[in-house]
């Protein structure tokens, strides 16, 4: 499965206040809220949990083809250590890995097929693919009618998950 999500922490701090009344209850379970509020850095833990849920949402939307919905509470997170965790949705679950820097938090579904990650603009990503896969021309970044990104490599279709927030953008492929 494939799905990723990035949070620009400076932008998130400017735009959202997780301590606002009823904020956490809209997104998180009571267990998740307890973890967040008991953590030294509640805001960063919230954004980690958010990015895990969002990555899983993208993965399950691609797999189950459900209609767009704003249902973060349907995805529940378990945290194993500072990087690894699991997100449950209905009767299924996915492993998610999260990278945390001073500037951003990035989560990605752990998958044996889609192991690669690229940080940068879409055109830089296309240049990167051309070099890496030794293509004759720069491939085109496209979206299915459901809005799912992919790259057409003439010989095959490369599934891609794209995430962008503030100053940061990343691709899983």
């Amino acid at each position: 499965m494939i799905g990723n999500d990035i949070v620009d922490l400076a932008k998130a701090d400017r735009e959202s206040n997780i301590f606002r009344l009823r904020f956490l209850e809209k997104i998180c379970s009571q267990e998740e809220i307890k973890l967040i509020l008991s953590n030294q850095n509640s805001t960063h833990l919230y954004w980690r949990i958010w990015s895990m849920k969002e990555s899983a949402y993208k993965a399950f939307q691609r797999k189950c083809k459900f209609e767009t919905a704003f249902n973060p509470f349907a995805f529940s997170c378990q945290l194993y250590d500072s990087q690894n965790g699991r997100v449950c949705f209905k009767n299924e679950s996915v492993s998610v890995q999260t990278i945390h820097t001073d500037e951003f938090i990035y989560s990605e579904i752990k998958d044996n097929v889609h192991k690669n990650c690229f940080f940068g603009s879409t055109s830089d990503f296309m240049d990167h693919l051309k070099d890496k896969l030794k293509l004759n021309s720069i491939p085109e970044f496209q979206k299915t009618k459901e809005g799912l990104p992919f790259v057409n490599l003439s010989s095959q279709i490369l599934e891609v998950s794209k995430t962008h927030h503030g100053n940061f953008q990343a691709f899983q492929y």
Binding site: E15, S16, L21, F23, K26, E54, F70
Partner: peptide, 11 residues
Amino acid sequence: INSANLVDIVL
């Protein structure tokens, strides 16, 4: 709109 902001809109 970034999905991270949907909660801000709801509130």
